[in-house]
Write a protein that binds this DNA or RNA. Sequence first.
RNA 1: GCACCUGUAGCUCAGCUGGAUAGAGCGUUGGCUUGCGGAGCCAAAGGCCAGAGGUUCGAAUCCUCUCAGGUGCACCA
Length: 502
Amino acid sequence: PLFEALSMQVAEITIAGPGFINIRLSDQTIFDQALAAPSTKLQTFAGQTVVSEYSDPNPFKVLHAGHLYTSVVGDAISRLIQAAGGEVHAVNFGGDVGLHVGKTMWAIVQDVGGEKPELLQNIAPAERAEWMAKKYVVGTQAYETDEQAKTQIIELNKRVYQVHAEGDTDTPFAQMYWTCRQWSYDYFNEFYARLGTAFEKYYPESQTAPIGVATVKEQLAKGVYQESDGAIVFVGEPYGLHTRVFINSAGLPTYEAKDVGLMMAKWHDYHFDKSIIITGNDIIEYMKVVLKSIEQFAPEFVQRTTHLTHGQVKLEGGVKMSSRKGNFLRAVDVLDAAAKANKQATGRDDEQAVLGAVKYAFLKQRIGPDIIYNPEESVSLEGNSGPYLMYAHARARSILAKAASPEYMAGDEGFELQPLERSLARDIARYPQVVQKAVTDLMPHHICTYLYELAQTFNRFYEKNRVIGDPREAQRLVLVALYADVLKDGLQLLGIVAPNRL
RNA sequence: GCACCUGUAGCUCAGCUGGAUAGAGCGUUGGCUUGCGGAGCCAAAGGCCAGAGGUUCGAAUCCUCUCAGGUGCACCA
């Protein structure tokens, strides 16, 4: 029976040199596979609960290019997992407590002239995020150059923890803190909405910190963590890692403890089958230590966790950046550069095209190394770009709009494809395998590479073959429809909207 | 110093669970295109896959070393 089934699908088997056998599928088989391609359902994550953490901006600070990048990548990966049957919960972790908050709050209090929450109303809503970012820079500089300021900032940092511990919403300082904190979250939400991504839950460090502290102290008693110079640390050397502080000598949790708390909170909330954390690659070693420490008391959490890391976003031409001075590449700088380039290239303002351009430019590259972003190239309608594929999709839809909806008659005897039809059908048929690879590797760029190749194959076909009015119109229309569907589906997996008309 | 990441065409990148002649885009050069949205198509030039060893029938891909660039190494996040 297997042989019989095969013989229906295989057109030819040839020896193709030493060690190679070529098996040519029948046109009917290729065509059937193409027909099934756009609607294939993958099962890799079927029935699994997946927590996907990415973006992770800190309240009281500005969103930089890296946040834009990780948001785009994290969104695409979440969509991939979802497409493979997973139930994805996108979450976001950020520091609403910690030294940077102390620095910013210190500068804010200085700037408005005391702990007077009513004075915050002088800051116009549109300027709040920018204003706070500047205060962070001022606070950071003061912390480094002014001993007295440093002492005050450390004190404020403790007070912020206290505000949380006591549930303080009344004192003037607490009111200022809560107001500014909310400004940050408003600013984040607006940004994510613009990108077309959304988070189910924010895990502020103020929430994970107490959990982390409790967990670390509990495991301290069991010997997982150790005391050292008044701090609580995890000694990583036995595992080939380094030692890190989880609770500092002042008794405050560091990022490490907050991350431990985050892991516990995620588990408590979701009982995940898989936990994916997407961050910059500067914290690879850090994360290894944190995970190794958790592995000592909750190995299954760590087994289910994947830490994906990516490089930094740099603008082509390389502007020197210094986060200390606050003149690094911000998320809006990237979007503005793309919008400007798009306006120049097309003469129009088109938010979807700009977003498609930026997302595609980020996603087409393998996750890992730094990415060099070129705004002009990203918005170009020629070459391997988001707008090019969006256009390709619109053009295909336009062909379809001119014809009656295609009907494919299955089971024709002696069904044959012409060479350019065949290569198009073959490329379409490959789609599920490509998505499968992207899902398995958690690498969206495979989809980009494929979609662009598909568009090229289509253009070669389209160059030489009339669709409407041709004797082969019926099956060609089917191919065009499948092509458009695959493009739309693929772009959608990347988080890119593919309108029928541009 | 130790650890990790990266090194493929002029530029930006695919290809990396080993397999046929290493592929795209941009840029350069030369053609095509009165037509379903020509934003395209065809072709040329351009590579010691950083370098050297090793494993293998076979290496851009795996291992070792060297070189170059980047990042991280206790109370920041």
